[in-house]
Amino acid sequence: MRQLLKKLAALIITLFIVSLLAFLAFQIIPEDPVTHLLGTEATPEAAAELRAQLGLDRPVLVRYFSWLAGVLRGDFGESYSYHMPVADMLSDKLPLTALLTGLSFLFTVLLSIPLGVLAGSVRSRFLDNLFAALDQMVMSVPPFFIGMLVCWLFGLVLRLFTPGAYVSYQDSWSGCIAYLIFPALSIALPRVAMTVKLLRGAIRHEMEQDYIRTSRSRGAGRAWLLFRHALPNALIPVITFMAVSLAEIMTASIVIEQVFTVPGVGRLLLASISNGDFPVVQAIVLILAAWIVLINFAADLLNGLADPRVRLG
């Protein structure tokens, strides 16, 4: 319990620091929203007036705390370019990115656990080499290129979907999910490769322990050894790894949304950065960072639940 409170305190402090960094980063970079909005031809008087109107003439720390006070009330400020509340802009983008993240995670789990068990339990040189080759390929190729390959293979060769023809979830949930399967697959593939490798290694390691030999000498069959003895132990590091990769999946979706023209948070983020629309950028960065911190916190707790050695030791 004390341990939990300590972790919770660390979590809150981390989130606070993250909010400070998310805010300060955009005060330091040489991007001026006023120049973006008025163009380079604006008179200094007009620029100064806009600056005062946006509140940019106040000291940085004053602006930070008034922003933070707003964020704590759920008010992320107003977009410079669209003159509408940032919260409203995010509210129809976030479900889409959340859906993409969820689908990617589902694929990661559904593909990597059976494949990992297969790779870990079957002693075949052919399979080993196949997995090693796939692993190298998927891990060394940048994510956007995997996205392009998926577009090419499933969109242009197999004609299972039309790249770019995104269906809005407001129109049709099933159509939207059918389209998102492919970007989700692109995000999941590198994680599947990593998880399969991890699970394979963990199963091989467990299968060499004395308790396996003991049980085998007592007449236990291969399936029993694998599923009742090795797997519960081998899954412990995998569960932690997958929880952490749930955090990465959301950031990976920023790039993949571009490739598949999915109008989610990632596309909004990139557009807002190039427009100097700092309130939007700050909000998205803060949400992404908070997501990662929270997921890592949850992974920590989950690890304690899954591992009897951590839980009771």
Binding site: Q209, D210, Y211, R213, T214, S215, S217, R218, G219, H229, P232, N233, P308, R309
Partner: peptide, 22 residues
């Protein structure tokens, strides 16, 4: 069939299960 006792009491018992299960 003969039974086995190993040297290392840390790796010869599966940590995932209770003593009763083992």
């Amino acid at each position: 069939r003969p039974q086995m006792v190993f040297q290392d009491p840390y790796s010869s018992l599966n940590p995932a299960h209770s003593v009763g299960w083992i």
